[in-house]
Design a protein around this nucleic acid. Structure first.
Lengths: 219, 219
DNA sequence: GAATTAATTGAACGTTCGTTTTATTATCAC
DNA sequence: GTGATAATAAAACGAACGTTCAATTAATTC
């Protein structure tokens, strides 16, 4: 046999990507074989090479698009407001929503970095750094304005990102907590962690209100 | 050739364990071949099977001993004091010190869980849960005593553990920050995150003092 | 110093891996 | 309908994998 009836390159490629994200997230990149992936898609292994020249190309594509998606999501969610507390709240909510929504590709992008070649690893890390830089800027602005109390901007940014991304390790949709409940709790933990002043309740109130509004959309 | 002069089973096994932790941490369990490991030890691949019946047995042994070490370390570091703030401070300091000290085996134990058989995975997860339970107990006690302000004990425990363990991702000994500086910063972030009351400065003062003392020892 | 045990080598086994090549069929443009 | 092209199958490639086995030598025991 050869070309099968109804076969379509675009659909096959999309199916390959989706199956690959799920399989790599579950088994790991090294443990997933191209034959396994092909079987999941319902195709022979050789057909995969029409869309991705090598296994590593496939991995890199998945990671690059994950990072591009993350950066685009933040660009879209970035608030017009300039006060650090509002910006921080938006960052936290966008981060958690994105990572829960794309749990599998996050898993892949975080766990399989060592399977990339040096150059491609550098590319992915550059994108990640750019994204994290945004959080550091928010923390720095907040510290300079005196509305945050952070000892070390870089260290706090890393701590927050690890904390937030960690959600994907234990969160399962439809269990005890909803996405909005998790987000709300993480938001208040974040605000306490950075020592956000909520003396003048206007600021903190705005943050909370913003949080609720976003939550409603996210669900 | 056969047995080599000066060969010693105990030494070889120790060398295998150490090389395995480093190689798996760097390449991943699936990507590390038994031949690679043997070469690192300076031995033929067949010799490894004298000490570990299968590759997975080797992985499991490394993980089990890592978890046992973590639990033993906490048993030794657990303070006699009963007030939640002191206990939390001890937990944080022990956790960070242990994870920085054993960065590689932590990496292995966190990243390679999916390569274990179901039964062995269950064993490791049971140990992990037991360890995390200690933190939840501290948070619960603190919340009930009114010295902590946590909305959700389980969720806060997960957030703290992810935050603290994340240190191994970016921390490199001998760079900008020392272990004690990192620990101190994480301790104060933790205390703020759980909303520890330091109105009566005695409590918070004690925590800080404890922190410094432990840091001195850790270095 | 002979017998026993411990430690290791070297070669081989069958399997699976990522990938390539060639042939074949479906689809589409004209 | 015919020719070009897109999409796939089927088979094969050499290399690497985890693991086993028999042979061999060092260390230990008596």
């Amino acid at each position: 046999m050869a070309r099968t009836t109804g076969s379509d390159g675009e659909k096959t490629e999309a199916a390959v990507r989706e199956a690959a994200v799920n399989l790599i997230a579950r088994l790991g990149y090294e443990a997933m074989s191209m034959r396994q992936l092909a079987a999941e898609v319902g195709v022979q292994a050789a057909a995969l090479y029409r869309y991705f020249p090598t296994k590593e190309d496939l991995l890199f594509t998945l990671m690059r698009e994950h990072m591009e998606g993350l950066i685009e999501a933040w660009d879209a969610a970035r608030p017009a407001a300039t006060d650090p507390a509002t910006r921080l709240a938006a960052y936290v909510e966008n981060h958690i929503a994105f990572h829960i929504e794309r749990r599998h590709s996050t898993h892949v992008s975080n766990m399989e970095l060592r399977s990339l070649s040096h150059d491609r690893l550098t590319q992915i890390l550059r994108m990640r750094t750019a994204y994290e830089k945004e959080l550091r800027a928010i923390l720095r602005d907040g510290a300079e304005a005196g509305v945050f109390n952070v000892e070390d901007t870089g260290l706090t940014a890393m701590a927050l990102i690890q904390m937030m991304t960690g959600v994907i390790v234990w969160f399962r949709p439809g269990e005890r907590l909803s996405i909005s409940e998790v987000t709300a709790t993480y938001l208040s933990m974040t605000m306490r962690l950075v020592g956000a002043t909520h003396g003048a309740t206007t600021t903190y109130g705005a943050v909370r209100a913003f949080g609720r509004a976003k939550d409603a959309v996210a669900l």
